[in-house]
Design a protein around this nucleic acid. Structure first.
Length: 259
DNA sequence: ATGGCTGCGGAACGCAGA
């Protein structure tokens, strides 16, 4: 089974690429982030033509997540149970479903904006709620994984120049501790291999030639429990999808499972 | 060529992204 995660930065803008990519890779389950469209605008028809069912949690201009599956889609949970609000709203940042043999979450963790910003404490609270919500499934015997845009680089190796990120979000001890606490439920960071260069970055800023200069970050992660991690036969970042006109600023992370 | 941001809402430019 091939499972992947991809922050598409607008499913509307990315639809031609997305459909072509699904066909060429034969992905069975795709976790999507930043759909940037309302649920009733989601292109369910075109995805169904390719054989995918979709679980969607999306409300409009910002955020939005989905799970696409052609191996079944059951027991959908929309949103993060017990998750915090921002500006009085539970933002659409999580959706989960059972896809064939595995329980799968697609998450888009809040950015945090600046250390000390209200959005930053929201980010940390969001991680706490996520940790509580996945604990039972993480410890269970069924393959389980949280995939998505975590908006944290787990180590200094996961940013192109740690000096540039000093004092910024995505690399602070508080955020990395939140990731470690999440892993403490029994989850392993499934490290993908890069297709080029030495680090498996998943995001490159659109600005200032970020991609050609490989000024990247690894912030799109696959956190699987032991039954999931032990079934992994391959994992890679599909940097080819970051190339050319009309690319997202994130590349897909692809994981092959023997299940 | 991998190339100096992009998408959205709304109809100019501000917000958000990380």
């Amino acid at each position: 089974m091939r499972i992947a995660t991809w922050n598409v930065n607008s499913i509307t803008a990315r639809l031609p690429r997305l459909l072509a990519w699904l066909e060429s890779t034969g992905t069975d389950v795709l976790c999507i982030q930043e759909t940037k469209c309302a649920a009733d605008q989601f292109p369910v028809g075109q995805l169904r033509e390719l054989g995918y069912e979709a679980a969607v949690n999306a409300t409009g201009r910002w955020n939005g997540v989905a799970v696409l599956s052609k191996v079944g889609l059951a027991d959908v949970v929309t949103g993060l149970p017990g998750g915090p609000e921002y500006d009085g709203v539970q933002e659409p940042r999580a959706v989960s479903a059972t896809c064939g043999p595995a329980r799968i979450w697609s998450v888009y963790v809040p950015n945090g904006r600046e250390v000390g910003h209200e959005h930053f404490s929201y980010k940390l609270r969001w991680f706490e709620a996520l940790t509580a919500a996945v604990a039972e499934d993480a410890a269970a015997g069924r393959p389980f994984a949280v995939l998505g845009d975590f908006n944290v680089a787990p180590t200094d190796e996961d940013v192109w120049d740690p000096a540039v990120f000093e004092g910024l979000t995505h690399v602070t001890p508080a955020e990395r501790d939140a990731l470690a606490t999440l892993r403490g439920t029994g989850l392993t960071d499934v490290l993908p291999r890069p297709l080029k260069y030495d680090r498996p970055y998943t995001y490159w800023d659109y600005r200032q030639l970020g991609f050609p200069k490989n000024r990247g970050m690894r912030i799109d992660l696959v956190y699987g429990n032991a039954p999931f991690a032990e079934a992994v036969s391959d994992a890679y970042v599909d940097r080819e999808e970051r190339k050319g006109k009309g690319a997202s600023d994130h590349a897909p992370v692809v994981v092959d499972l023997d299940v």
